[in-house]
Design a protein around this nucleic acid. Structure first.
Lengths: 236, 236
DNA sequence: CAATTAGTGCCAAATTTTGGCACTAATTCA
DNA sequence: TGAATTAGTGCCAAAATTTGGCACTAATTG
């Protein structure tokens, strides 16, 4: 394998694994420890910030905020691609996600590191995680993407979700509900929840929810109501 | 000078001069004619479209449409990016979709057109369209993506959808319904429909639907039932 | 202290790149 | 038509680069 490809692979591997030892990387890319060390050196010359730690439990680590390269796309364009690829990767089960990542890694390397840092930070804030299969960020509309992590935790950990809700009349109420499902009535998204204080199901427009947070102490159960094939709608 | 740098210089030079002979380029980058020919060959492999013309007054020329990018991505990588961007574009209402598209267009232009044609064709077959805001292909699970176009048309054109449905007991029935919404009860997706023959709402698991097709003659209206903020769930 | 891990310097072997050469094919122009 | 020009290919040996192995140092952990 040529040095360039190998170095690309190393970057991807490091990005994925977080921390790795030189020996492990060497085995992974099928090269000697010495060669990997040289590659790391080359990557550093290109501007990658790679932290290292000797001793047991040590290894090297790619500074997530550092990136560099050769492609000539505008920052905005790279940003857009970042979002695309991240959302696909978040979906998880597509075989091409890895390739898209590799392609994107090449592009990312072309940008000044401070701009990439800004992009990455914004992307983290924008949040595309395991929730994606349930909620597509592209469709969040007016909702602030920064609020999504709370939704993810609530769904995955089955924790109560607390938020402020502004109804159609503009009245704001505080809610604490069990998030049960997402209902999509294009173009709007609704959070379908069991409201224990009202002892009833309620539907909330996603873009009218503010300041959501999880209530870690309380865990709820899925209300698996039955449809005609075994599952029913959760509305009464 | 290493091959990579030299090739970058060649691209820049061609971009500046428009047309140049191999011999002139060789002199400019300080390499032999043979080497420059090899570099040109490599650049073409990487996707640069380079026209050539033998004879007096001839020379080589970068395809003006490939002038826009220097990103060096493999065909497979571009393919993966295509899928990412297409799925995002399909989502429709993101401000970045256009940018991602533009960025990708630059990359595409660097590829030989026949390869792009193949990719595009495959992508069309894979299908990622306007339905995506309602159905994320990554989450279709057991459902055949090839069936999706019928869903899209039905939703967008408000046509009746006809399909075979296999219920929990394995019984197969023929249905003809008004698709009203998608309901996501992770990890399953349901099609929420008004069934006119039963005069009632019915929920269908997406992965149990087979052979869907639109009924073009009949158009239905959205059954905009009200939630507590103005829209209610469409289930009874 | 022993074990572990990053990192360096050096050298010979392995691999890749290069230049030169002879050649073909296409095009221009007189 | 023929001479000149220019892209492009195949081949080979020389040149350059990359690689792996080795012995080493430095830092860290327990």
């Amino acid at each position: 394998m040529n040095p360039r490809q190998r170095q690309d692979r190393l970057v991807r591997s490091l990005r994925r694994s977080g921390t790795a030892t030189i020996a492990a990387l060497a085995q992974e890319v099928g090269a000697s420890r010495r060669t990997v060390l040289r590659d790391i050196c080359a990557l550093r010359d290109e501007g990658f910030v790679i932290h290292s730690e000797p001793g047991p439990g040590g290894g090297i680590q790619l500074d997530p905020q550092s990136l560099q390269t050769t492609a000539r796309l505008s920052v905005a364009e790279v940003f857009a691609l970042l979002i695309s690829v991240a959302s696909m990767r978040a979906a998880g089960n597509l075989p091409f996600a890895g390739l898209a990542d590799a392609g994107l890694a090449k592009i990312e390397k072309a940008l000044p590191s401070d701009k990439i840092r800004d992009l990455r930070r914004f992307l983290d804030c924008l949040y595309i995680g395991p929730l994606a299969p349930q909620v597509n960020i592209a469709d969040m509309g007016a909702m602030d993407p920064a609020l999504l992590p709370a939704f993810e935790t609530a769904f995955l950990e089955r924790q109560y979700l607390r938020f402020q809700y502004r109804d159609a009349k503009g009245a704001v109420t505080q809610r604490e509900v069990e998030p049960q499902a997402m209902l999509i009535l294009p173009p709007l998204w609704y959070l379908v929840s069991w409201d224990p204080t009202r002892n009833d199901f309620r539907h909330f427009r996603m873009d009218r929810i503010a300041d959501p947070s999880c209530v870690a102490e309380r865990v709820f159960r899925r209300r698996h109501v039955q449809f005609d094939d075994g599952v029913r709608p959760i509305t009464k």
